[in-house]
Amino acid sequence: GSKLPPGWEKRMSRSSGRVYYFNHITNASQWERPSG
């Protein structure tokens, strides 16, 4: 298991139950796992 880039964390969408990734530094969110 590799770590996520700085700022990123795994989140669960309440509406759909899907996992997404959220960056608390930039407030960005995306479905794809961030690389870096």
Rank of each mutant, 00 (worst) to 15 (best):
S35R: 10
S29A: 13
S13F: 10
M12Y: 15
R14L: 15
S2E: 14
Y21F: 06
P6N: 07
G7E: 06
P5L: 04
L4D: 08
L4K: 08
R33H: 12
Q30I: 04
I25S: 06
S2D: 15
E32M: 09
P34R: 00
P6L: 09
W8Q: 00
F22V: 05
S13I: 13
G1D: 13
S16M: 06
K10A: 11
S13V: 12
R18I: 06
G1T: 11
W31Y: 09
K10F: 06
P34C: 00
K10L: 13
L4E: 05
I25L: 10
L4T: 02
M12T: 15
L4Y: 04
G7T: 02
G7P: 07
K10M: 13
P34G: 01
R11T: 03
H24P: 08
T26K: 04
T26F: 05
K10W: 07
N27D: 04
R18Y: 05
S29W: 15
S13Y: 10
P6K: 07
V19N: 04
R14V: 14
G7W: 06
G1V: 11
F22K: 03
G36W: 15
G1P: 11
L4I: 04
K3Y: 11
R18L: 08
S16A: 07
T26G: 02
P34V: 01
A28Q: 15
G17H: 07
M12C: 15
E32D: 11
G1Y: 08
A28H: 14
N23Q: 02
W8V: 01
S35G: 14
Y21N: 00
P6I: 09
W8L: 01
E32N: 10
K3R: 12
R18K: 10
R33E: 10
L4H: 02
K10V: 12
V19Y: 10
V19R: 04
P34Y: 00
E32G: 08
W8Y: 02
S13W: 09
G7H: 09
P6V: 09
P5Y: 02
G1A: 12
M12A: 09
F22R: 03
S35W: 10
P5T: 02
S29T: 14
F22T: 02
S15R: 15
E9N: 04
Q30H: 04
S29K: 13
E9S: 08
I25M: 10
S15Y: 13
I25D: 09
R14N: 14
W31F: 10
W31K: 06
Y20A: 00
N27H: 14
Y21H: 00
N23R: 01
L4W: 04
K10S: 07
L4A: 02
W31L: 08
F22M: 02
P34T: 01
L4Q: 02
S29F: 15
W31S: 06
G1L: 10
E32K: 09
K3G: 15
S16K: 08
S16D: 10
F22I: 06
A28E: 13
K10E: 14
R18F: 06
G36A: 13
G17M: 05
H24D: 04
E9P: 00
I25W: 08
S16N: 12
P6R: 07
P5Q: 03
G17P: 03
Y21L: 00
G36I: 13
R18W: 03
Y20H: 03
G7C: 04
V19F: 11
S35L: 11
W8I: 00
P5E: 04
Y21V: 00
E9M: 06
Y21G: 00
K10H: 05
P34N: 01
E32S: 13
W31G: 03
S16T: 13
N23Y: 04
K3I: 12
Y21S: 00
S13K: 07
H24W: 14
N23S: 05
S13G: 07
G7M: 05
G36S: 13
N27K: 15
M12N: 09
G17T: 05
P6W: 10
V19C: 10
N23P: 00
R11I: 06
P5V: 02
R14K: 15
V19E: 09
Y21R: 00
R14M: 15
S2H: 10
N23A: 01
P34Q: 01
A28R: 14
F22S: 01
A28Y: 10
R33W: 12
R18S: 05
W8R: 00
T26P: 00
G7A: 05
P6Q: 08
M12E: 09
L4P: 15
G17A: 06
K10P: 06
P34W: 03
K3V: 11
S35K: 10
S29R: 14
G36E: 13
G7R: 03
G17I: 02
Y20M: 01
N27W: 08
R33S: 07
P5M: 03
R11W: 03
G17F: 05
N27L: 13
K10N: 02
R33Y: 13
R33D: 08
S15D: 14
K3H: 11
Q30K: 03
H24E: 06
H24K: 13
P6H: 09
V19P: 07
Y20F: 09
S35I: 11
S16P: 06
G36T: 12
R18H: 06
R18G: 04
G1S: 11
G7D: 05
V19D: 05
S13T: 11
L4M: 08
T26E: 05
G17W: 03
P6A: 09
R11C: 14
E32F: 09
N23W: 01
P5I: 02
E9H: 09
S35E: 12
Q30G: 02
K3M: 12
M12L: 15
Q30A: 03
G17D: 06
N27P: 00
W31P: 03
P6D: 10
A28W: 12
G36Y: 13
W8D: 00
P34F: 01
Y21Q: 00
E9V: 12
K3D: 14
F22G: 00
E32W: 10
H24T: 15
S2W: 12
P6M: 08
R14E: 15
A28M: 14
P5R: 03
P34S: 01
W8E: 00
S15M: 08
E9C: 06
S15I: 13
E9K: 06
R14A: 15
R33K: 10
G17Y: 05
R14S: 15
I25F: 12
I25K: 07
S29G: 05
S15H: 15
G7I: 03
R33L: 11
S13E: 14
N27G: 15
G1Q: 12
R14G: 14
G7K: 02
G36C: 15
W8M: 01
A28I: 14
P5G: 06
Y20P: 01
Q30T: 07
Q30P: 00
K10Y: 07
R18Q: 07
R33F: 14
S29Y: 14
S35Q: 12
S13D: 15
R18N: 05
F22H: 07
W31D: 06
S2N: 13
Y20D: 01
P5N: 03
E9T: 08
Q30N: 02
W8T: 00
M12D: 05
P6Y: 13
Y20Q: 01
W31T: 07
Y21E: 00
R11G: 03
N23H: 04
S35F: 10
N27I: 04
S2F: 11
L4S: 02
H24G: 06
R11V: 05
N23L: 02
Y20K: 02
I25Y: 12
P34M: 01
H24S: 10
H24F: 13
V19A: 08
S2P: 11
E9I: 09
V19W: 11
M12R: 15
K3E: 14
K10Q: 12
